[in-house]
């Protein structure tokens, strides 16, 4: 097995540090590709931006800031509160159930363009029904642990 140790292709991996072997290769690959992307894609793109043909991502685009930020805030609050509430009722899935009802309703309101009474009632029903159904099926029927 060790006969070809002088060959340029031979390699010896120390088990204690083997967890770094492959990541090193990938790091170098990413670095190399990044330089290539920079030269062949980013620089030409920036030139176009300068000439006014293209817009920069994020900065140069119009966006619905209210809905976008609102979504992010709702998601963070939803995920965070889920485990907080769930902690008061260990392993019953109530944390999931209660926060989902609030989350679904608020997110529906956020995404509605015109808030008619009818739409709000539908959203409200949905916000109650969907999590309750999911909870009954998954937590009660299939005994899946929920927060």
């Amino acid at each position: 097995m060790e006969s070809g140790t002088t060959s340029p292709l031979s390699v010896s991996i120390d088990f204690q540090t083997s967890h770094l072997f492959f990541p090193h290769i990938i790091n170098w690959t990413i670095g190399l590709l990044f330089v290539l992307v920079l030269v062949f894609r980013v620089v030409p793109f920036l030139k176009k931006v300068k000439r006014g043909e293209r817009a920069l991502p994020f900065i140069g685009e119009s966006m619905d800031g209210f809905r976008f930020v609102g979504t992010l805030v709702l998601l963070v609050a939803y995920f965070y509160l889920m485990s907080v509430v769930g902690d008061y009722f260990p392993y019953t899935g109530y944390g999931f159930l209660f926060t989902s009802i609030g989350f679904l309703f608020l997110m529906s309101l956020l995404y509605m363009h015109t808030r008619t009474k009818r739409k709000i009632i539908v959203a409200g029903i949905n916000a109650l029904l969907a999590p309750a159904l999911a909870w009954v099926v998954f937590a009660k029927l299939f005994y899946i642990t929920l927060p």
């Binding site: 939803y78 989350f103 679904l104 509605m112 949905n126 998954f138 929920l146 927060p147």
Partner: peptide
Amino acid sequence: PKYILFPIIVMMCVIGAYAINYGIMFDVW
């Protein structure tokens, strides 16, 4: 309509993520 569909999708994604490794909150994050 999306204002109904999207919240449901997010909720189902949460269940799936939480349950895939039998209940790990970090998977939701």
